[in-house]
Design a protein around this nucleic acid. Structure first.
Lengths: 215, 215
DNA sequence: AACACTTACCTAACACCGTTTGGTTATGGG
DNA sequence: CCCATAACCAAACGGTGTTAGGTAAGTGTT
């Protein structure tokens, strides 16, 4: 077959099929040949639409993080701005956990990522944080979100209770973590975020000279 | 050549050479053939010492995290216990940043990792935290460390200042981040850790009924 | 309308990858 | 002394991302 009358492929079709494969089979489970097969096409044909596999993954990453919300700083409340950003970011990552290693280790130089970074930094400074602190806070919050999304903690425990009994008495309930992994992940993230923001409240009060407890 | 009079290889030799390659060329830059060449040996020979590449990487990961310090809970001070753990963990990861994606996404089921988790959980409970909270705090702290180690934030900025001028006014200093990436990473982590622990102090006071400000 | 250019598919191949098979020889234990 | 095991090797298997070159359909220009 040469060029078909109506196109068989498009970036959207390829992107969606690839993400479906990643969600199902993991990041390592995506190969160009398998993806092509899924689309009833030969692997080489994909290169008419994406120059490399990496470019395809970057496009998928951009789509996943597309609806991360950085508009919460508009009213000058930096705390709720951070909360909305962090929660929407984590939710976006949690929807496609197999893509997290790629998103977290790849460079976020794409336009949309920079626009978000700009909004966050600007929002923090407008609310009264010194620029340098704003940079650190942006990074810190990313640490929390990315770390939570990598979620290697709760998933890292073996489902078999016998492993823990006797040998690690403090972890005697650890096997239950596997059943409730999502719940533990969520609560851990909320605890981390709340504690972090409480700590920032304290710091903010010290910086602005406000001696009242903002909590 | 068949079996040599004195062994050419050992797990230690292989492990060290592999880690050197990873540090130099990145995680994807390690192949069994390249590693074998570095050791003046054929690739198949490595399989006399490690069953798979994954097993080799797990061994490297265990070595990297070997000197993570979880002894700081001994005196009943949970805050300094967490600080010592988090700092030593982050330092271990920062020494070999190319291994972080593997360590952070691989399962931490190995014996040493479980022993550490047991010490942390036990230390928190002994200091007065409810068991469930102790679980969440352990996970939260891991989030911070792993997120910081993935460090995609500061590294994600392009070194070229012209990209930022005009388009992202709030990031006009962002190109300087690349020069001071290590410093920004370190300060961001310390800010995150301090704020998180300050927030936990507040939470702990509420739980134990202590109304005084512990800071 | 005729022509050139570009696009979207194909087949075939290249250079790599992790791993396995099967062979050879030295070592260490009974 | 013998023999199972261990540590090396060459060669191959099935997979990977990617490229080269071919063909025919679509698109734009004169």
């Amino acid at each position: 077959m040469a060029r078909p009358k109506t196109p068989l492929l498009s970036t959207e079709l390829i992107r969606d099929a690839a993400l479906r494969l990643i969600d199902r089979d993991g990041l390592a489970g995506l190969s160009m040949r398998k993806l092509a097969q899924e689309l009833n096409v030969q692997a080489a044909s994909l290169y008419s639409h994406y120059a490399t596999k990496d470019e395809l993954l970057a496009d998928i990453a951009a789509q996943i993080t597309h609806d991360v919300d950085t508009t919460g700083f508009a009213d000058g409340n930096w705390r709720s701005g951070l909360e909305i950003w962090a929660r929407s970011y984590r939710a976006a990552l949690a929807r496609h956990p197999n893509m997290v290693p790629f998103i977290a280790s790849g460079p976020g130089r794409r336009d949309a990522a920079l626009r978000r970074a700009n909004a966050i930094h600007g929002g923090l400074v407008a609310a009264g944080w010194p620029p340098r602190e704003a940079t650190l806070i942006g990074a810190s919050t990313t640490y929390l979100v990315v770390g939570a999304a990598m979620n290697s903690f709760a998933r890292g425990f073996d489902d078999d209770a016998r492993v823990y009994r006797d040998r690690y008495p403090n972890l005697s309930q650890a096997h239950r973590l596997a059943e409730h992994a999502d719940e533990v992940d969520h609560e851990s993230f909320e605890l981390a975020l709340k504690s972090f923001l409480d700590g920032l409240d304290y710091r903010f009060a010290a910086i602005t000279g406000d001696s009242s407890d903002p909590r």
